[in-house]
Simulated assay, not measured.
Amino acid sequence: MSRLTHLDENGTANMVDVGDKADTTRIASASGCVIMQKQTLELILSGNAAKGDVTGTARLAGIMAAKKTADLIPLCHPLMLSKVAVDIEPDEALPGLRVMATVKLTGKTGVEMEALTAVSIACLTIYDMAKAADKTMIISQIMVEKKTGGKSGDWQR
């Protein structure tokens, strides 16, 4: 197992110096879900939620969140993202909504945190917009699905 890169030789947290790393195309995808009552899913999909377009608003919130990751998570580098895509699909088996985010850039550091942040905030937005109808919702299974590029190479769950 690799050592933790955000700790110096004294165990103090610090921002990793990526200045000497080569620019490469980096892509990361993450996913998560919001489990809810079947009636809540039906309400969201019908477009009749009291707060409006739940999935459209959550998609936009996820995109905005990816761009703000460095403001939210200590030691993350501010990045010039070239692409953020957030997809939200109904899953009757949950029942609920599955959220997927893919983030891309050409740069010196990966975008896993940006993909995870996009999914997390999209899920939180879904919860916020539907909580009046269903306080039992569960945000679950937020994870990195795959990443490409960089020194450590490609990885897939």
Score class of each variant (00 low, 15 high):
Lys51Arg: 06
Met137Gly: 13
Ala115Ser: 11
Leu116Asn: 03
Ser2Met: 13
Gly52Pro: 01
Glu92Pro: 09
Val99Gly: 11
Ala66Asn: 01
Ala49Asn: 06
Val103Cys: 06
Gly47Glu: 04
Cys33Tyr: 02
Thr102His: 04
Asp154Thr: 14
Gly11Ser: 09
Leu43Ile: 12
Ile73Ser: 07
Arg98Ala: 09
Gly52Ala: 05
Thr5Phe: 11
Ile44Pro: 05
Glu89Arg: 14
Leu72Ile: 13
Leu60Asn: 08
Ala30Thr: 10
Pro78Val: 00
Thr117Trp: 01
Pro74Gly: 13
Gln141Cys: 14
Gly19His: 07
Ile44Glu: 05
Gln39Cys: 02
Ala61His: 08
Thr69Asp: 00
Tyr127Met: 02
Met113Ala: 13
Thr25His: 11
Asn10Phe: 02
Glu42Val: 11
Glu114Met: 10
Ser31Arg: 14
Ala115Gly: 09
Val144Asn: 08
Trp155Val: 10
Ser31Met: 10
Lys135His: 13
Glu145Thr: 15
Thr5Ala: 12
Val103Arg: 04
Thr106Lys: 12
Leu116Lys: 04
Gly52Thr: 08
Gln37Thr: 08
Leu41His: 01
Gly52Phe: 03
Val103Leu: 05
Asp23Met: 03
Leu45Ser: 01
Leu43Gly: 06
Leu105Cys: 11
Ala61Gly: 09
Gly52Glu: 10
Asp134Ser: 06
Thr40Arg: 00
Met64Glu: 09
Thr136Phe: 06
Met100His: 15
Ala132Ile: 13
Cys76Asp: 08
Gly32Cys: 07
Thr55Phe: 02
Val103Pro: 01
Met137Tyr: 08
Ile142Glu: 05
Asn48Gly: 13
Thr40Asp: 01
Gln156Val: 14
Ile139Gln: 12
Thr125Ala: 13
Leu43Lys: 09
Arg59Glu: 11
Ser140Gln: 15
Lys104Val: 14
Met113Ser: 08
Arg26Phe: 00
Pro78Phe: 00
Ile35Gly: 02
Thr40Ile: 00
Ala22Val: 13
Met100Thr: 15
Leu43Pro: 04
Ala118Phe: 07
Cys33Asn: 06
Asp134Ile: 09
Gly47Cys: 05
Thr117Lys: 00
Leu116Gln: 05
Ile88Cys: 09
Glu89Val: 13
Leu94Tyr: 08
Thr117Leu: 00
Thr55Trp: 00
Ala85Trp: 06
Ala30Ile: 02
Ala70Trp: 05
Ala130Lys: 03
Leu41Val: 01
Val144Gly: 02
Trp155Phe: 15
Asn48Met: 12
Ala61Val: 11
Gly149Arg: 12
Asp128Tyr: 10
Leu105Tyr: 07
Thr24Gly: 02
Leu124Pro: 06
Trp155Arg: 07
Leu94Trp: 10
Val34Tyr: 04
Ala61Ile: 12
Asn14Cys: 14
Arg98Tyr: 04
Leu105Trp: 08
Ser152Phe: 14
Leu45Cys: 07
Val86Asn: 04
Met1Asn: 11
Lys104Thr: 15
Lys51Asp: 02
Val84Glu: 03
Gly150Ala: 11
Lys68Met: 14
Gly153Asp: 14
Lys108Cys: 07
Val111Tyr: 10
Val54Gly: 03
Val119Thr: 10
Ile27Lys: 14
Pro74Val: 06
Gly19Lys: 06
Leu79Gly: 03
Thr24Phe: 01
Ser2Val: 14
Thr117Glu: 03
Pro74Tyr: 12
Lys38Ile: 01
Ala13Lys: 12
Gly47Ala: 03
Gly107Leu: 08
Thr125Val: 12
Gln39Glu: 15
Ala101Ile: 08
Ile73Glu: 10
Ile139Ala: 12
Asn14Asp: 00
Thr12Asp: 07
Leu72Ser: 06
Thr148Pro: 02
Lys146Cys: 07
